[in-house]
Each structure stands twice: as C-alpha cells, then as structure tokens.
C-alpha cells in the first residue's frame, strides 16, 4: 500500500515473508472480520444461526460480484460509476421481455448481454475516444438509468416466470444459496486471472504506469476495454440475481449501489489511484460490509444509520495505516 507516497522506492531486500503476511492488508481485514463476527454474536442472540448466516450472504453477494470486476478496473486506473444504472437498464429490459413472454433462459441471456453491451459502450467512450472514465460513467449512469425511466416511468414489471426465481432465491444445497456459490466461483476465477495470469500482470502494470506499459507492448486500450466489458458483464449478472430475488423491477432498482461497490473495493485494499490490490481483500471487504449491515439490521438499526458505519469504516480503514506508517517512520528517524 504505497499508494499515497510520491516516490516508489524498491527496497534492498524484501520483508520477512511471515512478517509481511502478519502485517498485510488482508490480515488486518481478517482481524476486523473476526472482531465484527464476535461483536455481532454477542450483540444479538439471533446472529449465530445457520439460516441467519445464510441470509447474511445475500447482503453482499450481488454487490460483491460487481466489486470483483470493479477491482480489476480500478487497479488499471479507471472507474465505473454506472454499474447500478446498468443493473436498472438490464432489469428493465428483462422485465419487458418477460411481459412479451420470453422464458427464463432468454431473460438471463438478455440481462447478461445488456450488461456487456453497456460495459462495451463505456469502454468505447473511455478507450476509443480517450475520455476520462469518471465523467463518462457519470454520464452513462444518467443515460442508462434514464432509459429505464423512459421505458418504465412510475410503473413496475413483476410478471417473471416462476423458474426465474431460482437465481436470487434458490439454494444449491441446504443453506448454501445459488448466489453465494456464484460469488465464490467468480471470486476464484477473478483471483486466478488477476494474480496468476499474464492478463492480470498487465492490469497491474497499466495501473502503475500506462505509458511504460504501452512501450512494453501491453495493449493498454484493449485491456481496459475488456475490463469495462467485464464490469458490465458482472453488473448484468447482478441484475439477473437482484431481479430474480425481488421478483419485480422499478427504474430506481439498485440505486446507490455504485458507491457501495466502490467502498467494498477500496476497503479491500485496492488503491483508488490504481496499480495495487488483491481479490482476497475485496472478498473479505464484501464479507465485512455484509456482516456490518446484517448485524446492525438484527439490532434494528435503520439502514441510513448503518451507512454512517460504512462511511466511517471506509475512512478509518484507509486513514489508520497511513497514520500508523507515519508514526512508525518517525520513531525510526
């Protein structure tokens, strides 16, 4: 996490592996997660129950799926604020198709393809026209959700086929939901791609220095385009899950999710400036956010007050290591 420094120094020798493991971001997140789990168990008698814990997972699986792809995008130095709007548009078009009598496989296909198409549109504007992704995706955020509003207005679609409910409400085995399995499988795939393939290395290299990467032969624009498509794809998948779970579509569906997804990614140790991060961290951050909101929910804390905790968590988790590093550096000097 040398994200905030002005110069990146390469140390003479690497830290002791055990030491770097204990002081890693992921270890901190595990500690936070365990602490929250214990506090939750003590605070509410309803928390330690298999079905409660199963319900808990629904709090983060959909956002977590998007966070996986968003992590790669942010590591590469870009951002996508339009993911929640993509969910709304994909959900609306699925609703339209359901009214027209399209079956479950067709609906899933529509949801996923709308997601990819929206992601590709973002990717084209950013990489093809060379526009800043923050502004582009603020624009497409209004555009995508705006189209959903044009189609739906103040109406709602809720005539989905019965078999469509499986994706958001079904269980693969006992308390293990389909959403959770999908999230874990996706996490493994994204972890593998980011940390074990040359594509993942290219993502890091682009985030650290796009110009040097370009001269090294990395196809910067094409890689970023793929990342935008992946983020769109995950938003499309999340749209299928949410639509299936809620069984209805309004144009305001998933409002504000983009900020929660980005909070998840940053909390997971991904540098908002690009170039650093891990999928394990993002998965842990998703779990933490799910536990915080679920635990507070069991204590009847209103959602809006929970958001204070999420916001504080975000700022504290970023600020504490910076302060700690500053204090320890001063002690050395």
């Amino acid at each position: 996490m040398s994200a905030i420094g002005t110069t990146r120094q390469i140390p003479d020798r690497l830290d002791n592996p055990l030491r770097s493991l204990v002081f890693s971001w992921e270890a901190l997140l595990v500690a936070v997660a365990v602490a929250i789990f214990i506090v939750n168990s003590l605070a509410s008698p309803y928390f330690l129950d298999v079905w409660s814990l199963s319900d808990l997972t629904f709090n983060f699986t959909e956002k977590g799926l998007i966070a996986l792809a968003m992590a790669l995008l942010i590591i590469s130095g870009e951002i996508d604020l339009s993911v929640a709007a993509i969910i709304a548009l994909a959900s609306t078009l699925m609703g339209m198709a359901a009214v027209a009598g399209v079956g479950t496989p067709g609906l899933v296909l529509i949801g996923v393809s709308v997601g990819i198409a929206c992601g590709a549109f973002n990717g084209f504007l950013v990489t093809g026209l060379g526009l800043p992704s923050i502004v582009v995706t603020i624009g497409t955020m209004s555009l995508f959700r705006g189209v959903a509003f044009i189609i739906l207005g103040d109406q709602a679609y809720n005539s989905y086929p019965a078999s469509f409910a499986f994706f958001g409400q079904g269980y693969v085995w006992w308390v293990i939901s389909f959403e959770l399995v999908l999230f874990l499988v996706a996490a493994v795939i994204y972890g593998f791609v980011l940390h074990k393939t040359s594509f993942g290395r290219r993502v890091f290299s682009i985030g650290n220095n796009p110009i040097a990467s370009h001269f090294t032969g990395v196809r910067v624009a094409r890689t970023k385009f793929i990342l935008f498509c992946l983020t769109g794809l995950m938003a499309g998948i999340a749209s299928v899950l949410i639509t299936s779970r809620l069984g209805s579509t309004r144009p305001s569906i998933a409002q504000g999710y983009e900020l929660e997804v980005i909070t998840m990614v940053v909390l997971g140790g991904v540098s908002i400036l690009g170039g650093a991060g891990s999928i394990l961290g993002v998965v842990l951050a998703a779990l933490i956010m799910g536990m915080v909101t679920f635990g507070l929910g069991l204590l009847n804390v209103p959602g809006i007050v929970m958001s204070i905790f999420i916001g504080l968590l975000l700022i504290l988790v970023i600020a504490l290591p910076i302060l700690w590093k500053r204090v320890s550096r001063r002690r050395v000097a």
């Binding site: 130095g77 870009e78 951002i79 504007l125 026209l129 060379g130 526009l131 800043p132 992704s133 923050i134 502004v135 582009v136 603020i138 624009g139 497409t140 955020m141 209004s142 555009l143 995508f144 959700r145 705006g146 189209v147 509003f149 044009i150 739906l152 207005g153 103040d154 796009p210 110009i211 144009p251 908002i272 400036l273 690009g274």
Partner: peptide
C-alpha cells in the same frame, strides 16, 4: 422521465466536445 437520459446525453456530448482541446489531460486522470 426523459430528463435523466437527456442530461446523461448532454454530459457525454459535453465531454466529447471538451476533450478535443485537452485529450492528454483526460486520459490518465486517476
């Protein structure tokens, strides 16, 4: 209900037009 989509389009058009004069600045904003 059209307003949101129209402002979105306006934002995108504005960025495309503005970017012509400052392309390099926009590319590596983060």
């Amino acid at each position: 209900f059209w307003q949101m989509a129209i402002s979105g389009t306006a934002i995108l058009l504005a960025v495309v037009l503005n970017a012509r004069g400052e392309r390099k600045q926009g590319r590596i904003i983060l």
